[in-house]
């Protein structure tokens, strides 16, 4: 069951592209986090800081392509997972933002995307479980 779940819509080309994007992402993260302050020009610093965004866009497009070739039930599962993730993630991030605004907690905006992703993965498991 889980092999079918994880491998739906994938191919050797998919995994190769995922590996390339992951490598680019990790390299860009290291560059952005460790070396960004060494860049003097504000424009160049912004470009270095935003470098990880390009591989992430690549991830999203790759996943979009993968989902398009899966069957209708799998597409429904992905849709339900997105809805679950949004239903939990958006109020959570809004709450954290408001608490940050009120000075109750300190939240870094940087965490928003990882938080949504962290909710999306178990949301997929829940959505998949409904149709087991």
């Amino acid at each position: 069951m889980w092999r079918e779940y994880f491998c739906a819509g994938t191919s050797r080309r998919y995994w190769w592209r995922m590996a390339v994007l992951m490598t680019l992402y990790l390299g860009a993260i290291v560059l952005a986090v460790r070396h960004v302050h060494a860049v003097e020009s504000p424009l160049a610093r912004a470009a270095v800081a935003l470098a990880p965004v390009l591989p992430v866009i690549g991830f999203v497009l790759l996943e979009f392509q993968r989902i398009r070739v899966t069957d209708e039930l799998r597409q429904r599962i992905e849709l339900e997972a997105c809805m679950i993730a949004l239903a939990i993630g958006v109020p959570l991030l809004l709450a954290l933002g408001l608490l940050d605004q009120a000075g109750v907690v300190q939240v870094r905006m940087f965490l928003a995307a990882p938080v949504l992703l962290a909710i999306y993965v178990p949301a997929q498991v829940v959505a998949h479980w409904r149709y087991r």
């Binding site: 069951m1 079918e4 779940y5 739906a8 069957d71 209708e72 039930l73 149709y131 087991r132």
Partner: peptide, 15 residues
């Protein structure tokens, strides 16, 4: 041309 999961979900009435 669907997954086994889809067939199972149809047969059990979940989909």
């Amino acid at each position: 041309a669907v997954s086994r999961q889809t067939v199972n979900a149809i047969e059990t009435g979940k989909y």
